[in-house]
Design a protein around this nucleic acid. Structure first.
Length: 122
DNA sequence: CAGATGACAAGAT
DNA sequence: AATCTTGCCATCT
């Protein structure tokens, strides 16, 4: 499997109503520190693919607006708002609230263990 | 094959 | 806190 498909697999795991950062996706995909490759991979996502690319934002919780995106950046914001994500006045998302916090190993295996989740949240 | 570029991130200023 | 600079790697010229 190519590294890009691995990236797409992780992006597909982002639940509706949550967002993840490029660096986070890179780490979960087994490419720690290679956030740029994640962005490049998402650029190559074919239209119609079942990849929620709109749920990936930069580390500042903001959409990466670019002139080379044919306006898909603007669509990204609309899609996120459709999913119930609220933007700050400065156009940023509060990652403390909407940031996706994946469970360890839950991406590679079917999450079956489900106990009371009173763990630290830092 | 070498140089430039890019949906980023972290460190320095 | 905001902006600039450097690192990283796959693709494109």
């Amino acid at each position: 499997m190519s590294a890009y498909e691995q990236i797409y697999a992780v992006v597909r795991l982002i639940p509706l109503g949550k967002v993840a950062t490029y660096g986070q996706i890179a780490t979960l995909a087994g490419l720690p520190g290679h956030a740029r490759q994640v962005g490049y991979a998402l650029f190559r996502v074919a239209p119609g693919a079942d990849v929620p690319w709109q749920r990936v934002v930069n580390s500042r919780g903001e959409i990466s607006y670019s002139a080379l995106r044919h306006g898909s950046d603007d669509i990204q914001r609309l899609l996120l708002e459709e999913e119930g994500i609220q933007f700050n006045p400065n156009g940023r998302i509060d990652l403390r609230h909407y940031g996706w916090q994946p469970l360890p190993l839950s991406e590679l295996a079917t999450e079956q263990s489900q106990e009371g989740g009173s763990k630290s949240r830092l």
